[in-house]
Amino acid sequence: MAIGWYLAVSAIIFCIGAGGVMSRRNPLVILLCLELMLNGANLALVAFARMWGGEDGQVFALIVLVVAAAEVTVGLGLIVALYRRRLPIDVDELSELHG
């Protein structure tokens, strides 16, 4: 398959994730949609690595994987802390930092 197909799939996945981040209200699902966006970017990185025949893009994708894991850990920790303090699990209600 041509590399363009992979890039198209990665763009679609990224856009689905972006739409989900904007339209969902449950912070857990927002984290999942962030994962989708990161995965779309990862697919593009790996596709470009294949296109150029270099492995640097794959290393970059691995680092993105690590960053995503770190982000998930902190995000889930935040959600558990919210739950412990009996705050609503809803990003529309959590607007104390609105300014």
Partner: peptide, 9 residues
């Protein structure tokens, strides 16, 4: 490169 199948494996 987008139209091609990538660098030779």
């Amino acid at each position: 490169g987008i139209k091609g199948r990538g660098a030779p494996f």
